[in-house]
Design a protein around this nucleic acid. Sequence first.
DNA 1: CTGAAAGCGCTTACAG
DNA 2: CTGAAAGCGCTTACAG
Lengths: 322, 322
Amino acid sequence: MEATIKDVAKYAGVGVGTVSRVINNEKAVGEKTRQKVLEAIEALNYSRNNMAFQFRKNETRIIALLVPVINHPFFAKLAYYVEDEATRFGYSVILVSSQQNVDKEAAIIKKIAHREVDGAVFVTHYMHEEESLKGCPIVSIDRNFGENIPYVTSDNYDATKNAIKYMIEGGAKKVGFLGSKPLVESEVSERARAYVDAMQEYGMPLRMVNEVMQHGEEAAVVSDFIKQYSDVDGVFVSGYTLSQVFYDEMTALGKRIPDDVEIVSYDGIFRQWGAINMTSVEQPIEEMARQVVRLLVKKIHGEETPARTVLKTKFVLGATTK
Amino acid sequence: MEATIKDVAKYAGVGVGTVSRVINNEKAVGEKTRQKVLEAIEALNYSRNNMAFQFRKNETRIIALLVPVINHPFFAKLAYYVEDEATRFGYSVILVSSQQNVDKEAAIIKKIAHREVDGAVFVTHYMHEEESLKGCPIVSIDRNFGENIPYVTSDNYDATKNAIKYMIEGGAKKVGFLGSKPLVESEVSERARAYVDAMQEYGMPLRMVNEVMQHGEEAAVVSDFIKQYSDVDGVFVSGYTLSQVFYDEMTALGKRIPDDVEIVSYDGIFRQWGAINMTSVEQPIEEMARQVVRLLVKKIHGEETPARTVLKTKFVLGATTK
DNA sequence: CTGAAAGCGCTTACAG
DNA sequence: CTGAAAGCGCTTACAG
């Protein structure tokens, strides 16, 4: 049987309150008493029962990370850094892959509302209006779930515009945009907006597919795009999976890349996964993860947080542009 | 303020014990009483305080998943299915990427020993001898951490041997093996053993690099292999990352694959990550994950578990063999 | 079938 | 500075 605070108190000949104060490093304890207690703790190999502690303090020291899928380079990397940063702040991370299942998401929401976690990072697809959620600290990435949910994002608009300019200045005349429309209000939409604006500025017609898409429907969307715009010579692809599928499909059709068609993608670059060496807008995933955790910790502690944090991306040249 | 069991009892005009019995679905409650309580729960929008419940029952309903890295196709996929299966059994999953940091692993071990989780799935690199761990339910994948830690694995030996035979029967004369030696006793070592046996059977000399390797040292190991065995015409590569790096390196050297060199890898196939379409031994990751969770749940409940569960792999033909 | 009570291991006013 | 006591929200023998 594990030793309890009571055992320690008895052994040291003091009250349990005193032991508690020593454990929690409160200063108001006499040096001699402290020593006695410390010795007792040592002798009994005592360590605080976490469940009792949490129950008493009404905090779990756990945060939840909700992602649509975990087996995806972006989310996996994000998860790694979220976990790392959370650990620094003394929090554990519960991982939830909603797999774009609205019911599963709802179940988690309930957990959060029931205070099984202290807070959550939402990087999901659906909107949840759980009234019980109001009091729970939640932060997000890219998604704008409302004014109470601060989020971290990257400079989607500028980065996309620059990437498109790069292709056009390099000679591309028929530039397309391939993306999928987010289900919730999201900064990701800025990419499409940037494309539309750029086309207008250059006086070029739109070649764009940007519909709502389920995970796994990439192939259909890609072939839809290719059917409509077989004449493109430069394409901006929004998102990792789409970019990989698009590249494969174009290659299969005999297109030479970048000679016939240039490709730039958002998040296209995950070399360590064996991905294609693609010219890409690279998001600062580590920094996004760390920032979002810090936001959450602040929210948990009831501190003020900025509603929107924008981080800079990097334009990385790969083998898919001239 | 959230309603407590006390509020419900008062509202329903019964004792708290009765409310508890209703909540926990014990049969020994009169139908009329049950109805009254149910109504009270409804009216007060009561839901059980999980922290109190856990504290009282001395269980967290959380399991930990320890992986070396989460941003890796194998572990990410594993994590997804572990989480999914755990959810079915009512457990949440705390994700820990030890990043091959022995201190971080040790910190987690301590958590587990302190019962911050009910059990753990260890898929790590180091051996931990924490005496306090003895009582804690732990299971593993591939690793053999000792007789108290059951594990799930795949048919490494047979699968490797078959793959090598496939290359040889297809015409390969100089077959190599590229892998990394596990730091703990692991079924992964069976792959090297199968290769050695196969070479002996066919009377072929060994062309083998199989040293202990840190994550990130893949490139060095690969070039080490290539320097020594530039004449190979078929290579079995153990592990996803190594196989990707090897493929890239060979291609960069102007080797045509599979015409000059055939490659078969263990875990080489993660098309959804944009990986090369490689002939590969495919592990049943989903099934491994589900089995390992079921093992763990059994251990948590104190049930008997088989020490070793072996699942069948699939040989998948890709574009890296003739 | 049901209620009153003890107790899980802590923290935290409250006195002194 | 320190101890005795109350209480966090539950579950679970124990009587009846």
